[in-house]
Design a protein around this nucleic acid. Structure first.
Lengths: 254, 254
DNA sequence: CACTATTAGTGTCTCTAGGATACTATCTAT
DNA sequence: ATAGATAGTATCCTAGAGACACTAATAGTG
């Protein structure tokens, strides 16, 4: 199975063990390196993930890590897949497609909540790691009972996961505003808001100005965030339902 | 109007001219710096945008740029807004919401095509530059004739622009595969694909494996890309229509 | 048991970047 | 003319990614 040649990158992503057992035994493995990097990112954000810091948290030197990851960029890819984590068991089983797709999206959103820095990673093409593939697979499976063809299913998955990601990015952006240690930050924030209000002139930006004036952007608490997320999600699901040509009511189990 | 205090960052974003005319006159201005940076990114990607390189392309020194941009990060924000460009005239005028929203999305996608690196920028909160606000305003205006409330309109805009962005990211990822100078690259690509096909085992990933086997992912030409984009876009518009509770047929002009 | 190929880990160097600081240059208002 | 203000420069520092040549530790083999 792994006798064939395989790009080293992929072998690391899929944790294919090396077949040779000669030479000095390794003290680490890809998994531990990646776990350390993920932990670092969870604690201090993606910017804190540097080879020196990861090495320090593992008690080695920077250069030793290159035995396990190839490059910083590859480390990010590995982190991405690792942070995705396995597909939760709650997604298995059957049910109407709409419910399954909704659950899939919510679990996906939960992943972003656990690892907010995931939203900062620039996407590197289609999923290629075991966890990424597993999520993809589960998403496809949620649509098994629908008449959609492959292209459509892939399209729906791209759409939904793109939505979840941008929602996470937005939430992250809003949360960033809440940081800083208070007074100074708050004052700057207020000044910023006031300046914006002055800049968005009703003559030039009628609708945006009306929106600002309406105060609909004011309370951006966590509660509101969830509601907004639901709004977009259900809207997308409505779109899927329209494509299917039937309402997402009870159906024969997949 | 600009007599009030205003954060320097915002003043630069909105190109508010300084009121003082004393001292040595500047040879550059924010606009030229940003344009140079955008040109660089267009030619060589976002990674090529470094202060030294931008400075060189303008015939100055790195440190001179700090008179105009404050920080690298701010430069990216300025580039973002500048690259958005003004809202095209074709979006003004009236028409049914669905058509207007569709046009808005397509024009937005065209922006990403002109400046692919835009998809690599991590979003820094809601739009705050003149162009960003103008696009936002235009998006809102497209929904004027609908009964949606402000929250819903904002939600739709977030959803749609998130979709456009992730579609651009995907296209970018696929295009990246086409790069390299040929043979070597192609061989690596093929090997990668074959390895992936082996790794996605039908027992473990039944739906994903079936998808791979179906060959639905094969031809990823530009043509297909457009079609995929339309699919998601129309799906979202269907969702909006469902929210409105009416089909997007002809309506009283906004 | 010794030896050697093989793999793991280290020390050091280079390149590049962002940014701080202290400086010089050039202008305008008075 | 000159003082104050603004533009631009030279030099330094910190930090990260990665190359390279090295040393260290092990397992199979004779």
């Amino acid at each position: 199975m792994d006798g064939d040649r395989m790009p080293a990158e992929l072998a690391r992503l899929w944790r294919i063990p090396a077949d040779s057992r000669r030479g000095r035994p390794a003290r680490l493995d890809v998994g531990r390196v990646v776990d350390a990097a993920v932990a670092l990112a969870d604690r201090q954000g993606l910017a804190a993930v540097t080879l020196p810091k990861v090495a320090e948290s593992l008690g080695t030197t920077k250069m030793a890590l290159y035995r396990y990851v190839g490059s910083k960029d590859e480390l990010l890819t590995l982190m991405h897949d690792a942070a995705n984590g396995p597909v939760p068991a709650s997604l298995e089983g059957t049910g109407p497609w709409r419910e399954r797709l909704r659950r899939w999206s919510e679990e996906q959103a939960a992943v972003f909540e656990r690892h907010p820095w995931l939203a900062d990673l620039r996407p590197s093409g289609p999923p290629s790691g075991p966890n990424g593939i597993a999520w993809f697979d589960a998403g496809l499976r949620a649509m098994r009972s629908t008449p959609l063809d492959w292209q459509a299913r892939v399209g729906v998955i791209m759409l939904v996961s793109g939505y979840v990601k941008s929602a996470a990015q937005l939430a992250r952006g809003l949360a960033a505003g809440r940081e800083g240690t208070g007074m100074d930050q708050a004052a700057a924030e207020r000044e910023y808001g006031m300046a914006m209000a002055r800049l968005v002139e009703p003559e030039r930006f009628p609708d945006a100005a009306a929106l600002f004036a309406s105060g609909a952007l004011e309370d951006t608490g966590k509660q509101t965030g969830e509601e907004d997320f639901r709004f977009g999600l259900e809207l997308v699901l409505d779109g899927v339902a329209a494509r299917i040509g039937a309402e997402g009511g009870p159906e024969p189990a997949s």
